[in-house]
Computed example of a mutant assay.
Amino acid sequence: MRTTPSRRSAPCRRSSAGPSRAAACTASARTGTSTGSPTCRRRPRPPRCPSRWSRRPATASTAPTAVQDAGECPEPAYTVEKSASSAGPVNAGDTLTYAVTVVNTSTVTVNAGFTDDLAGVLDDGQVVPGSVTASTGTAALTGTSLNWSGVLAPEGTATVTYQVRVDDPVTGDRVLRNTVTPTSEGGTCVAEGRCAVEVPVADDCDKPRKPHGNHKPHENQKPHGAHNPYTAFKPFKPLSGDLFAGKPLAVPGVPGLPARNR
């Protein structure tokens, strides 16, 4: 009697019937059995990216790209840098312009961000109202911190600027000191010392004085008239007349002074 082999042990032989071969290979892979045929081996899977790419919702920075589909997993990276319009010393009443530059240095789009601590600046000055601007993204001053966030394409750049006016008179420690810090994944300072700025404030005695202009006469001041020319000193003439003639000169406190007016 002829027996029919079961589906589980059926060999995966080449056949013109494509669906039958695919079904046999699928069943063999599902049950973990191998029929010895090289056509039933499992296909190797490409390496998966870290969980942050697959578990997060698809956004501009986490959506799969052609590079990731090829098995590569690029990391997001960006740099920040801080600068001021003057190295100082600055004087009371002066205005400085600060700039923070953000650059995407990776090959993928990144969600970048930073915070700029202004506590060491606001004790000697004030942020000029309406001076905070950003070339892209959103920047806002909250308390003593300036926060920015935005999406940058590969090699993209964002610049955030704001102005600070030095108090007059100065009541702080006379140093405008602040530091910018990246707040998103992959953010770093562009180089050591390039994310902190210190600008000294000059003492009041060192403040340059404005030259005096032409003084205007007071409203009640009368103009000077022509001065009489100087004449040589003339000696006094001796006293004469009946008023002092023959009378001794009396000097208080000096009794019996034998002096007469002649």
Rank of each mutant, 00 (worst) to 15 (best):
A63H: 06
A22C: 08
K82G: 01
R21N: 01
R56Q: 13
T95K: 05
G93R: 06
T31G: 10
T59D: 06
P74Y: 08
A22I: 11
T59V: 00
R48H: 08
T31F: 14
T26N: 04
R43D: 05
Y98Q: 02
E75D: 12
G36N: 12
T105Q: 05
P47T: 01
A84C: 13
P44Y: 06
P50G: 11
T97A: 09
T62Y: 04
C73V: 02
R43L: 07
S54W: 08
A99Q: 14
R30L: 15
R41W: 04
N91F: 12
A84M: 04
T97E: 12
S85C: 02
N104E: 07
P19D: 02
D69E: 14
P19M: 08
G88S: 08
R43T: 11
E75Q: 10
E81R: 09
P57V: 01
Q68Y: 00
N104Q: 10
R45P: 00
P76R: 01
Q68T: 12
R43V: 10
R30I: 14
T35D: 15
S37G: 03
V67Q: 14
P38R: 10
V103C: 01
V90P: 00
P57F: 10
A63G: 13
T101P: 07
T79R: 00
K82R: 12
P50R: 09
T59M: 06
A60W: 03
A63D: 10
R30N: 08
P47V: 02
A23G: 09
R42H: 09
V67G: 14
R52I: 10
R48D: 09
W53I: 04
K82L: 13
P50L: 04
R21T: 07
L96H: 03
A58G: 07
T65K: 06
T31M: 15
T33E: 15
N104T: 06
R43Q: 13
P38K: 09
C25T: 12
A27Q: 15
P46Y: 03
A87T: 13
V80R: 02
V103T: 15
T39E: 07
S28C: 12
Y98G: 05
T95F: 00
P44H: 09
T95S: 06
T35R: 14
A66V: 10
R48M: 10
R43M: 08
P76I: 03
V67P: 08
S37Q: 10
T79I: 08
L96D: 00
G36D: 10
C73Q: 03
S83T: 15
R41L: 10
T39M: 08
C49G: 04
S83Q: 13
A87F: 05
G36L: 03
C40T: 09
V67R: 13
V103N: 04
A66G: 14
G88M: 07
Y78I: 06
P89H: 01
A58V: 11
S28I: 01
T31Y: 15
A27E: 15
A17I: 08
A66I: 11
P74K: 05
T35L: 14
C49W: 03
C49R: 02
A60E: 07
A84V: 13
P76Y: 05
C49H: 04
L96M: 11
T97D: 12
